[in-house]
Simulated assay, not measured.
Amino acid sequence: MTTTQNYAVAGMTCGHCEVAIRSEVSEIPGVIEIDVSAQTGRLAVTAEQALDDAAVVAAVNEAGYQASRS
Rank of each mutant, 00 (worst) to 15 (best):
T3L: 01
T3C: 03
T3G: 13
T3D: 12
Q5D: 14
Q5P: 13
N6M: 03
N6F: 12
N6R: 06
Y7C: 05
Y7M: 06
Y7S: 04
A10N: 14
G11I: 01
G11T: 01
G11Y: 04
G11D: 10
M12Q: 09
T13Q: 05
T13I: 13
G15M: 07
G15N: 05
H16L: 02
H16W: 01
H16K: 02
C17G: 11
C17E: 05
I21E: 11
I21R: 09
R22Y: 07
S23L: 13
E24Y: 05
V25Y: 04
E27S: 14
E27R: 13
E27L: 15
I28Q: 09
P29Y: 06
G30A: 13
G30K: 14
V31N: 04
I32Y: 04
I32S: 05
I34M: 01
I34A: 00
D35H: 11
D35M: 07
V36I: 10
Q39Y: 09
Q39S: 11
T40W: 01
G41A: 00
G41R: 11
L43I: 08
L43Q: 06
V45I: 08
V45Y: 08
A47P: 11
A47G: 14
E48S: 13
Q49P: 11
Q49V: 07
A50H: 09
A50Q: 12
A50I: 00
D52M: 06
D53G: 08
A54T: 13
A54S: 13
V56P: 00
A58Q: 03
A58C: 05
A59W: 03
A59F: 07
V60A: 09
V60Q: 06
A63N: 12
G64W: 04
Q66Y: 06
A67Q: 03
S68R: 15
S70C: 09
S70R: 13
S70H: 14
